[in-house]
Amino acid sequence: MTAATAHKRSRTDALKPYRLVLAVAALYGVAAINSPERAWGAALVAAKTFASVAPIIIAVFAGLGLVQVFVDKQALARHLGDRAGLPALLIAAAAGTILVGPVFVVFPLLKTMRDHGVSWAIITTALTAWAVKLPMVPLEVTFLGWRFSIARMALTLIASVAMGSLMGRLMREKPEAIMPAADSDTA
């Protein structure tokens, strides 16, 4: 069946979302067999929720495009390199919040910075502040409310600075002495 072919291609990230769609469709199939009217009810809830937030989702992604093109990631990276101490962490936190992009763009970017001598503390702070997801806020507010969104962002920012200084300390010893280098086979 399709499961076998899906498994064979499990490494290709591009297909992942479609596997999820198939899985959910299968769940609906099972639900429809057991209780057609409740399955129909679930589909209705799904459609209504989606329809109510569709304009916001579209607006968020239009904004994401603007940030992606108009925020110069390389310049952002340069700014982080030439400072130290708490001010550096605060700047890293600020930079992290406006950083936009998928894992496979952000990880290598920060790795490049690390290779240019930027401290682990700053890398961790930027990476953690990246979780603030500022461009997604309209969506978060719609589902969870202003108070939730603001509190979560503020606490994540605080955590980013705390994690940064902690990781800066933890990473100070020689990495090779404590743990072997990344096993290249795992990925």
Binding site: P17, L27, A42, A43, V45, G65, Q68
Partner: peptide, 21 residues
């Protein structure tokens, strides 16, 4: 923006389907 949106759309459809269930 359109490319990110297109990339995420299948996941969103699945997630909203899950939310309904």
């Amino acid at each position: 923006g359109a490319i990110s949106f297109a990339g995420i759309l299948p996941t969103l459809i699945a997630v909203f389907g899950l939310v309904g269930l």
